[in-house]
Simulated assay, not measured.
Amino acid sequence: MQSESGDGDLDGLDLQLIDHLQIDGRIPYVELARRLEVTEKTVRRRVSRLIDQGYVTIAAVTDPSLLGFGSMALALVTVDGSRSPVELADELAQLPETDYVTVTTGPFAVQVELICTDPRELHDVAFGKIRTTPGVAAVELLPYLRLHYQQARFSGVRGDRDGVRPRQLDETDRAIISRLAVDGRAAFRDFAAALGVSETTIRFRYTRLVESGAVRVMCIVNPLRLGYRWSSWVTIRVDGHGSARDVAEALTGLQPVSYVALTSGRWDVLAEVVTDSGEALLSVLDDDIRAIEGVAALESWSYIALHYKAVRPRRTDGLAGHDNDIQIV
């Protein structure tokens, strides 16, 4: 089934702005105005509306472990029929430990991506908070052994360096990423002094981080809003002669694949595939993914609805860190 969500509230200028901001979320507004042949005032007003009305977030996309989250998993939720999956997803999206909640076809009506500090917190959220939520019949976890690849750009032709992968970074690099995860367009001069380095150093390090694939500051948008209404989770089981790491790496070469994780549990690899039609999804599954050496079996669950939040640095003051980031779309 395809989602009822779409891009009807976005006009041509909005879509062009999103496309440019997905390439570079820090592009100056004056440059955006020049490229789109509109006034800078128009660009600022349009981008502010897109952010304020929950269409987009401009933030750093990076390995969540750099922001203090050491354990991740996809919680597969079986519902008991007493509540609609959409209503249940609305509630689960309010949990501070969730960053991505999907309602899909398939055996699990709701999937909840959890981002936690350690395995104990992950277990407590899944089987304490989620399992006891009215409407939930059962919860199964797919813990991430590695978040292998993230590609948050959907529109346009992607470049070889668009994706984000885990990297070993020093404390200054981590601090820069943490600031940009809160506000992707924050001025470097505003936090250079706080980090004890010069603005020139911040700029140099940021450029190096982007070139290495450790981070991208970009416009994060729900793919359903852009017309990719047949987006889907795809779970893959690897055969006895294959390597889960090799399968995961092969997936990163497919343009419709936006997310890849190596998992433990009943599946070995988890991927997100972003497509605009059933035929396109079928082509990716049959012609591309099934053809990868080592793939023994797969399942796909197409999105009906999606809630997301930007991943912000882990708060240490005991307060819920993501409540202001919830994007209900």
Rank of each mutant, 00 (worst) to 15 (best):
residue 9 D to W: 14
residue 10 L to N: 10
residue 10 L to R: 08
residue 12 G to N: 15
residue 19 D to N: 11
residue 30 V to Y: 03
residue 34 R to P: 00
residue 39 T to Y: 08
residue 44 R to K: 14
residue 50 L to K: 01
residue 52 D to L: 11
residue 63 D to K: 02
residue 70 G to R: 02
residue 71 S to L: 01
residue 71 S to R: 10
residue 75 A to F: 10
residue 76 L to H: 08
residue 76 L to D: 02
residue 79 V to C: 14
residue 80 D to Y: 05
residue 81 G to N: 01
residue 83 R to N: 07
residue 86 V to I: 14
residue 93 A to P: 01
residue 94 Q to W: 13
residue 97 E to N: 14
residue 104 T to L: 03
residue 108 F to Q: 04
residue 108 F to P: 03
residue 115 I to W: 02
residue 122 L to K: 01
residue 128 G to C: 02
residue 131 R to S: 11
residue 137 A to K: 14
residue 139 V to S: 13
residue 146 R to Q: 14
residue 152 A to H: 10
residue 159 G to Q: 08
residue 161 R to L: 07
residue 162 D to P: 05
residue 164 V to H: 08
residue 170 D to R: 10
residue 171 E to F: 09
residue 179 R to N: 11
residue 185 R to P: 04
residue 186 A to W: 00
residue 192 A to R: 04
residue 195 L to S: 03
residue 200 T to L: 12
residue 203 R to N: 10
residue 213 G to A: 13
residue 228 Y to S: 04
residue 241 H to Y: 01
residue 244 A to L: 06
residue 260 V to P: 05
residue 261 A to W: 09
residue 264 S to R: 14
residue 265 G to D: 13
residue 282 L to A: 15
residue 291 A to S: 15
residue 293 E to K: 09
residue 300 S to Q: 10
residue 303 Y to M: 07
residue 307 H to F: 14
residue 328 I to P: 00
residue 328 I to D: 05
